[in-house]
């Protein structure tokens, strides 16, 4: 059974001021409910000011992810986000312990445990940027990033995507299929993306298309990754 952690932020008071969001709790806690309904384990659920940027930052950068995000099998983050033209993704937090935003260039996932990272935030796997430059150094045993290109909706009508993904991923449906099916919205033009790492082209494609809980794929150290493969619908 997989261990699951979620962090979500709707409220962004000073000094991390942003427009408030409304359904990040619905998305992340729904994902948790979906996974738990299929027998997986709730390890942590931190929302608003309880969600800390250091939970996503590697100890190599004085972070604490090895006790939180990198200590579970699958983590789900729902908040504001953006990838800048320097190819760094930043995810927004509602309270400042050390910083208001976590950065993809300070992420090293899987060197403790994390296998799948879900980022329910805008521009998180942004196809108009260099997705390899943004994320290649985050894969240290991490098998897949599940995220969005362009903007993703914060609304009641699409807030169930977390639960819908969690119930299927938790049922050992292919992770890619579950994410792309459940997070795609024709109506609101939400475009989910998945990205996997591999030792070869075939390995990266195979992992992207077929990985799931219990698949038997191993964790690949960063220095053995030769290829990345990704997929999206539009």
């Amino acid at each position: 059974m997989a261990e699951v952690g979620v962090e979500w932020i709707n409220d962004f008071p000073d000094p991390c001021d942003q427009n408030e969001l409304s359904y990040c709790d619905e998305t992340s806690e729904g994902f948790m409910d979906g996974m738990v309904s299929r027998g997986h384990t709730n390890v942590f659920n931190w929302g608003n000011a309880n969600a800390f940027e250091r939970d996503f930052r590697d100890p190599a950068f004085s972070g604490d992810d090895s006790n939180w995000v990198d200590a579970v099998d699958i983590a789900h983050f729902s908040s504001h986000g953006a990838t800048n033209d320097s190819n760094v993704f930043r995810g927004n937090f509602g309270g400042q312990v050390d910083a208001c935003r976590w950065r993809s260039d300070q992420a090293r996932f899987g060197n403790t445990d994390l296998e799948f990272l879900c980022i329910d935030a805008c521009n998180s796997l942004e196809l108009t940027r260099d997705v390899i430059a943004v994320w290649e150094n985050a894969f240290h045993g991490l098998r897949m990033i599940l995220a969005f290109t362009d903007l993703v909706s914060d609304s009641w009508w699409t807030g169930g995507r977390g639960y819908n993904f969690g119930r299927r991923a938790g049922n050992s449906v292919r992770i890619k299929t579950a994410w792309l099916d459940e997070c795609y919205s024709f109506w609101l033009d939400d475009n989910p993306v998945v990205m996997a790492a591999g030792r070869s082209q075939n390995s990266a494609r195979n992992r992207r298309d077929n990985d799931r809980f219990g698949s038997g794929f191993d964790d690949i150290p960063n220095n053995e990754i030769e290829w990345f493969a990704w997929s999206w619908r539009d």
Binding site: C122, D154, W156, W157, Y163
Partner: peptide, 25 residues
Amino acid sequence: VAHKSAFVVNAGERAFSKLVGNKRF
């Protein structure tokens, strides 16, 4: 930072059901 959302309201003079419900999870 940007975000996207929807604003949905009943268009009829009389509304029969809510188009936005309570949070589910």
